[in-house]
Design a protein around this nucleic acid. Sequence first.
DNA 1: AATTTTCTTGACACATTCTTGAGACTCAGC
DNA 2: GCTGAGTCTCAAGAATGTGTCAAGAAAATT
Lengths: 235, 235
Amino acid sequence: MENDLTVNDNPLRVLVVDDERPIRRFLRTALGGQYTIFEAENGKDALQIMITSRPDIVLLDLGLPDIDGVEVTRRLREWTLVPVIIISVRDREEDKVAALDAGADDYLTKPFSVNELMARIRAALRHCAKPEIESVYQSGDLVINLALREVRLHDQLVMLTPTEYDILRVLVTYAGKVLTHHQLIHAVWGGGNEANAHLLRVNISNLRRKIEQDPLRPRHIITEPGVGYRLRDIE
Amino acid sequence: MENDLTVNDNPLRVLVVDDERPIRRFLRTALGGQYTIFEAENGKDALQIMITSRPDIVLLDLGLPDIDGVEVTRRLREWTLVPVIIISVRDREEDKVAALDAGADDYLTKPFSVNELMARIRAALRHCAKPEIESVYQSGDLVINLALREVRLHDQLVMLTPTEYDILRVLVTYAGKVLTHHQLIHAVWGGGNEANAHLLRVNISNLRRKIEQDPLRPRHIITEPGVGYRLRDIE
DNA sequence: AATTTTCTTGACACATTCTTGAGACTCAGC
DNA sequence: GCTGAGTCTCAAGAATGTGTCAAGAAAATT
């Protein structure tokens, strides 16, 4: 757009995730003049670099050796709204839909034109002027770090089951707000699953046993009778 | 993403801009079940409909008879951030770059897969999720926050039962206006339930005990004899 | 294949909330 | 003052919601 008058002294940061070194080198050459480039050759490194270097946008290959790109996207969306552009050889409709629905912002098929990529990067950066999610929740002695996927009580790591963590993550994302049973069940077990409020209660109970000082008088996970649960807002 | 907790009662509105009637019909068929569809066959109409109908997203063909799609995009960006997805037969790099830099959010080449289009629509809509409206009612020392589902008296949290909260929520929604017994009963207990005015009175009584300074001389929940109840408007 | 962990289900105790009925109160109009 | 319709409050049983335990099924890990 013509209106963009800002001159960027410190260039925007781009994380390139691809297991093939030539492609990383190619992208570094193509984009390096304009952006600061970070590289990762697998999903694990990518998630790590996201935390340490906080890039402004991610170019992500799907075919990584360890974690699949779609899964990487999903993990990122647990705590950040950073724009993610998928760059993949896979051209099938299902792949695109899966990646976009996992939270990717755009999907480009290899081989691609550098100019188009750069235009799509500009477009993606444009509409992401949104405030970031708070990725660390802290209340008293309880610290929940969504980026590290880790929960600490008195600096002590708390081991949660995947389901327990999911519930807690949703609660943190909407900290302070009431989430109905239905909303939580939908968010954790997906849309198809219906009406298992009991399961939710059991998990909340287990969760409380692990993160509450006194599970009988919960200070963090508050019951809203007849409605759902709420994570006490940061005090 | 599973985390999307919003439940849309009124469907999102999609504006389809294409000069070929078959394509408009095709898109209406494909998307009509999920979205409300508006159509325009040229750029002038499109810009007009944008103002009158305020759609949530625009699917825009480039080859329009009057104004070029890129120009339409540029005009839109002068006053709105509505997501624009270009759908065009043009596959050249320059066209894509021009459209994206004019402010389009995505670019899809005809022929395209419907599933991919729908996934890209979902992705585009995700970007501009509207921030929630904080609906707060305040009257003197009574504060009712519908978003947080929280009622405070003197900054002190008031615990309400689900039914009590429901009644109060309806009253707040129509603050200042008289709601008949029948309207309240219908809103709280649903359509089938009939004629239990006594139940309503008991709940109003309990509600007053919790949120009124002097339940005998209510200042917030006013009785309109023979008609119903009314929440005193913000003073 | 064996082991561990996690998920899911059912049973039960406990707490809260809903609903109902009885009675008291208010305020017109007679 | 009396009557009656409408309103308010209280209290108790019924109904529903919630938390916990434990055991079998399923899944992941070894």
